[in-house]
Design a protein around this nucleic acid. Structure first.
Lengths: 225, 225
DNA sequence: GCCGTAGTGATGCGACTGCATCGGAACGAT
DNA sequence: ATCGTTCCGATGCAGTCGCATCACTACGGC
């Protein structure tokens, strides 16, 4: 059997087939890196002309590798798409955390929350590509169980992040004590996703989306009186 | 030139080619009705296996007509998809108005709003099919200008309906006087769309979605004290 | 030197795609 | 009866799809 990518485990080390090491590494290729490259090409194609325009040939051409190379990285097209989803899911999650971490100096809970939300909503024009890809996967997940599972996990992670953030605001006394973190997080996550879609089809502007999210975040702030 | 469907105008009456009338009607077929049938099949296929699984042959088979008949109704596949989008857009809009009109007896503004919203959100299990189709079109609209235009119009109509509904609540004094109908309508529309997606991928239950929408509607109600 | 193996690009294959075209059936008019 | 027109289902066609398989190269171990 050939050496091929296994979606669930990338460990090498079949019986006796020792992994080539450090310097020598004659032909061994960095599969992780190649898979990421391919996933990026998949995303790029989806953003350019939609999910149904993704073919193995076009992906290979875009990634600058042969079709055979793509097929060795992923057994089937579905496996490739699944990996691409995990890829951008991770990117969205990472972006949310990054934006949160490097938030500017007046780190009020409301500001932190708003920044995190706009990262999740992918509202900024430079995130449009990711937003298109994300939306395409969400739509496809409605008819593909494995994709839906990955999305659910990502949503849960983001939800937990929001819950923590709101709880933090309550602890500092900046958010009203009677706020329900669970409820607010659910609302905000759905709101962010809906706004993503509205911005993409041109019904809302990115600024409007950002404004709406900020307004809701402000609604959590300040004790009633 | 053959007689064919024109997307923008369905009027007959080319020079001298009189339309067959009333009783005789030998072969003349009801094109409107057939187009609706085909659009239903398109939606059914999308709901079953996604937008990229829609082919002219499968649509024809599902609709119980020949492929030639489909091609005579729609010049191209894109034209067919566009019509299908208009078809379900109209259905969603109609459903919102219907649910609003036949709302049960205690017709408080909050109840009316909540019912309308759950119609828009397509949260109920029996609307799942429509929700899948809707989401698929939204995703596709991100890379297709004509589809985006139709969606924008539909969104605007729904937005106006929500604005009117909230204004109505303010007039009756049931909603707080300082509520901003525009802001609330935008938020609610995005919230409804986001919840649709979350329910479809299984991250939220329909009940949870309905609950969230009701909570927000309640937030509009009752003067601060 | 030779062999085994991992990795490569190229090509083949059957299925399916959207779209164009065709011969003929069903009718009104003459 | 014979047109002319309108509608119909069937088939043809060039292109593309996902996937399998190929012959070949580059290398370490012996």
């Amino acid at each position: 059997m050939r050496q091929r990518y296994d979606a669930t485990a990338s460990e090498r080390g079949r019986t006796g087939a020792r992994q080539r090491r450090d310097t020598g590494v004659p032909k061994q290729v960095d599969y992780e890196e190649r898979r990421r490259r391919i996933a990026d090409s998949v995303c790029s194609l989806i953003a350019r002309s939609g999910m149904e325009a993704v073919s193995l040939r076009d992906v290979a051409a875009d990634a600058g590798v042969s079709m055979g190379a793509v097929q060795r990285c992923f057994r089937t097209k579905d496996e490739m798409l699944l990996f691409a989803l995990e890829h951008i899911s991770a990117r969205v999650g990472a972006r949310a955390h990054t934006r949160l971490a490097q938030s500017p100096e007046p780190r009020s809970a409301a500001t932190l929350l708003a920044r995190t939300l706009s990262a999740i909503a992918l509202a900024d024009p430079e995130d449009r590509t990711d937003a298109q890809v994300w939306l395409a996967f969400v739509a496809h997940a409605a008819v593909s169980e494995p994709l839906a599972a990955v999305l659910c996990q990502t949503y849960t992670d983001l939800h937990d992040l929001l819950v923590w953030l709101i709880g933090y605001g309550k602890d500092t006394g900046e958010f009203r004590a009677d706020a329900d973190p669970e409820l607010a997080a659910r609302t905000l996550l759905a709101l962010a996703d809906g706004l993503t879609a509205h911005v993409l089809v041109g019904h809302r502007t990115p600024e409007s989306a950002h404004d709406l999210l900020s307004r809701y975040a402000e609604g959590l702030a300040a004790p009633p009186r």
